[in-house]
C-alpha cells in the first residue's frame, strides 16, 4: 500500500530530518555556549596542561558531541589554533566501552554524559581528564591493554573442544541465565579499575634497544604483579558458573589467589558504584572470595 512518497526535497530524507532539530521544546534558560576545560598531554612522559574550549550549545548534547566540535574547530577558547584533542570512542551508545574518561572528576562514559545534566551539576564549565590509572597515550586516550591482559590471566572463556558441531550447549535454567547475563554485559570500560583504591597505575616504558616482543613480555610481567581488578574477578565468576566453563574453575581460582588476585581487594565498593552497566561486582567479589577460601583449604588437603 505504498504510495509515491512526495516532497523528499522538502523533508530532507531519513536520518537527517531526525537530527535537523532537537525537539524544539524551548529550553528557556539554555546557555548559548558550552565551556569545557580539558587536561591534555601530547605523548607519554610529557607534561600535562589544561586547555579551555568554548563551543555553541545545542540541545541534547553529550560529551562526545562537544569533543567532535572541539576537533572540528581546533581552536582554543582564546582563539589560538591548537591540535584537536585526541579521544577514544566508537559506538556512542554505551556498549563498546571505548570512551571512558573523568568527567567533572567522575569516571564514566563520555557518550552517555549529557551536557544539560553536567551543567546542572557543576555550573558553567565541564572538566575532562584522562583516566588516571592507565598510562596516557595522548590527551584523553589511555592504554588499557592491562585490562585485556587480566582477562587472559583469569581464563575468561568457555574451554570448548572447538567449533565443530556438537549440538547445542548445556540446558540452562532461566534463573541461571538471569544470574549470568548481567555479568556478561561487562563492556571492559575500566571504570571499576579507575575507581578502585587498590588498583594503581602501572606504566612500562619501552627501552630504546628493546624489541617489540621483549617489551610486550616485560609489560605482561609488570601487569601481572598488579591487581587484576573487579571486572576480571567478575568474569572469572561468570565462567565458573557456566556448566562447561566451570571445568577449569580451579585454574581461575589459582589465578585469583596468586599475586595481584582477590586478596588485594580492600572492599571499598567503589567499583560497583561507578559501573555504567550496574553489574553486581561486589557480589562477584564476595563469591570469588568464598570460592577462593574453599579452594585454598581443599588444596592443602589434596596435597
Amino acid at each position: 500500500m505504498i504510495k509515491a512518497v512526495e516532497s523528499a526535497e522538502h523533508s530532507g530524507g531519513a536520518g537527517q530530518q531526525a537530527v535537523a532539530d532537537h525537539g524544539g521544546n524551548g529550553h528557556a534558560a539554555a546557555p548559548r555556549v558550552v565551556r569545557v576545560r580539558i587536561l591534555r598531554q601530547d605523548a607519554p612522559g610529557e607534561e600535562s596542561y589544561w586547555e579551555r574550549f568554548e563551543i555553541p550549545y545545542v540541545e541534547n548534547m553529550n560529551v562526545i558531541s562537544i569533543l567532535q566540535q572541539v576537533a572540528a574547530r581546533a581552536k582554543s577558547r582564546d582563539g589560538r589554533r591548537v591540535a584537536p584533542v585526541a579521544w577514544d570512542c566508537n559506538c556512542l551508545e554505551e556498549v563498546c566501552g571505548s570512551c571512558t574518561m573523568l568527567i567533572n572528576g567522575r569516571t564514566r562514559m563520555a557518550c552517555s554524559a549529557l551536557v544539560d545534566k553536567l551543567l546542572e551539576e557543576s555550573g558553567d564549565e565541564i572538566e575532562l581528564r584522562p583516566m588516571s590509572k592507565f598510562p596516557v597515550v595522548r590527551d584523553l586516550v589511555v592504554d588499557r591493554s592491562r585490562l585485556f591482559r587480566a582477562l587472559e590471566r583469569v581464563k575468561a572463556w568457555v574451554p570448548v573442544d572447538g567449533s565443530y558441531d556438537h549440538g547445542p550447549g548445556p540446558r540452562i535454567s532461566p534463573e541461571s541465565q538471569e544470574d549470568a547475563y548481567p555479568l556478561a554485559t561487562c563492556i571492559s570500560c575500566g571504570c571499576c579499575m579507575e575507581a578502585c583504591p587498590q588498583f594503581t597505575k602501572i606504566e612500562v616504558v619501552r627501552r630504546e634497544d628493546e624489541s617489540a616482543e621483549a617489551f610486550e613480555a616485560r609489560k605482561k610481567t609488570a601487569f601481572d604483579a598488579g591487581f587484576v581488578g573487579a571486572h576480571a574477578i567478575s568474569q572469572a565468576m561468570l565462567f565458573n558458573g557456566h556448566p562447561t566453563g566451570k571445568m577449569i574453575a580451579d585454574e581461575r581460582l589459582e589465578a585469583l589467589t596468586s599475586q595481584g588476585g582477590i586478596q588485594m581487594c580492600g572492599n571499598a565498593q567503589n567499583c560497583v558504584a561507578v559501573c555504567p552497566k550496574s553489574i553486581p561486582l561486589t557480589r562477584s567479589i564476595a563469591r570469588a572470595g568464598r570460592a577462593a577460601t574453599v579452594w585454598a583449604i581443599r588444596k592443602i588437603f589434596d596435597r
Binding site: V158, V160, D165, P168, G169, I172, P174, Q177, A184, T244
Partner: peptide
C-alpha cells in the same frame, strides 16, 4: 541451526524458556 548451537556452546547467555531451552 549449527551456528546458533555453536554460539550456545561458547557460552552466549541466550534467554531461556522455563524448561531451560533457548
Amino acid at each position: 541451526p549449527r551456528i546458533v548451537d555453536l554460539m550456545d556452546r561458547l557460552g552466549v547467555p541466550f534467554n531461556r524458556t522455563p524448561e531451560g531451552y533457548r
